[in-house]
Nucleic acid binder design. Structure first.
Lengths: 224, 224
DNA sequence: CGCGGTAATGTAACATGTTACATGGCAGTT
DNA sequence: AACTGCCATGTAACATGTTACATTACCGCG
């Protein structure tokens, strides 16, 4: 049987993905200037798809646009990060509660898989892999909550969190062992069906980024 | 003292606002086809700003884009509306809780103002005004929660809710008196500082749209 | 030395031209 | 009548040209 030929994504989608990736990986540092023309040249496309991509990334909070002057990678201050974490924890605890009600078995199975991968990565000291599976752990709540709007909203907001986390990682203010322990606790609460406890733990866990970001500001004035 | 001259908004912003308004008012019915060219002609602009506007409206969930084929006003089914309401109630109850913690006095004052305006509009049987002040009531929670991300997320999501509500209004399945009573209850709970009760009432109130939408589907097959 | 004006440059906003894709109808074949 | 492929049309994706705005540096003048 022949396989369907793969339809190439639109240039805009591709451009969005590339720029987002560059920001999340730290290749385009927080606060750095983005010229449509330069980005277009780098990616080998014209300015149109770049302009549209930046407009979309703005709605994700990853890019700030100053009309006629230029665009910049977002540069959160402590308050921004704080609000970001609070918002994220609102979405994620809601998703946790719903998925525990609606797809508990599937949720636990996904969480278990992510946790095992995290343990492995931690022992191998592979921080990148750890980070990916950490993300998978959190995405599991969204994948099983049976609300596509909530899932989409989370996807839209999580990018900027990852961007901050990359920055924190690069500045060396992260604590993987504690993080791992917290994930284990959250999982245990979910398994026991204690939604309220799980939410409390999850909220505290998410707000840890706040502290780490503060530490990264104090430790090294790497931003700006 | 001279007043600052007003800077004309960008065409894109203006285009977004116009198209959004047309959808929310029912001028462009749910599910109807949108041609970039026709919209550009109607608004007297070129296709570029229209294309960008549609891309943004897509992220708000107001428009669906099928590559190379055309764009359409969103056409939610019962499940979509259900998820929309659930998502909205997640954001709004979170905002209620936060604003009660952080700016209780300001919140109560805004709520009171909105409620009085609603009463007046109800007595005058001015449904349009009622609807606007109803919206102001709900926005008060967001305005006082001190989390700009949450506020922005709400702004992005509320459009599609309004679009559905317009449809419900037009099909005559709305119940303003009951709505008014619910707002009074929510306000009372807030005033008493009973956040949990207020959230429960608010959630039920928001999900009322669900029922009304169902009724509008059954009563008249006006969609599609 | 400070100030006002101006010119140069970078930038995106916007318009428009070109291309490729999706669709529907129609004709030709059986 | 049914099926097949072609063509006409509508559509947006993308590229590029043009314009207007914002910022900066500089220069001449007080």
């Amino acid at each position: 049987m022949m396989k369907a030929i793969e339809i190439p994504k639109s240039l805009i989608e591709e451009t969005i993905a590339r720029i987002r990736e560059a920001i999340l990986s730290g290749e385009l540092p927080l606060g750095s200037k983005l010229s449509e023309q330069r980005l277009a040249d780098m990616l080998g496309v014209s300015r149109s798809p770049v302009a549209q991509a930046l407009a979309i990334l703005k709605t994700e909070g990853l890019v700030e646009i100053y009309p006629k002057r230029g665009s910049y990678v977002y540069l959160p201050d402590a308050r921004d990060v704080s609000e970001m974490c609070e918002y994220r924890s609102i979405l994620e605890t809601a998703a946790l509660t719903l998925s525990l009600e609606r797809q508990k078995a599937g949720l636990l199975s996904s969480l278990r898989g992510a946790m095992q991968a995290m343990e492995t990565a931690l022992q191998a000291k592979d921080l990148k892999a750890y980070s990916q599976h950490d993300m998978a752990f959190h995405l599991a709540f969204l994948a099983h909550c049976e609300n596509r709007r909530l899932e989409a909203a989370y996807a839209r907001t999580i990018s900027s969190v990852i961007g901050v986390r990359t920055h924190v990682f690069l500045s060396g203010s992260s604590h993987s062992e504690r993080s791992m322990a917290e994930h284990r606790q959250i999982f245990a609460a979910c398994e026991a069906g204690k939604a309220v406890d799980a939410c409390r733990l999850l909220k505290a866990h998410i707000h840890r980024l706040d502290e780490d970001f503060g530490a990264s500001l104090g430790g090294a004035d790497s931003i700006g």
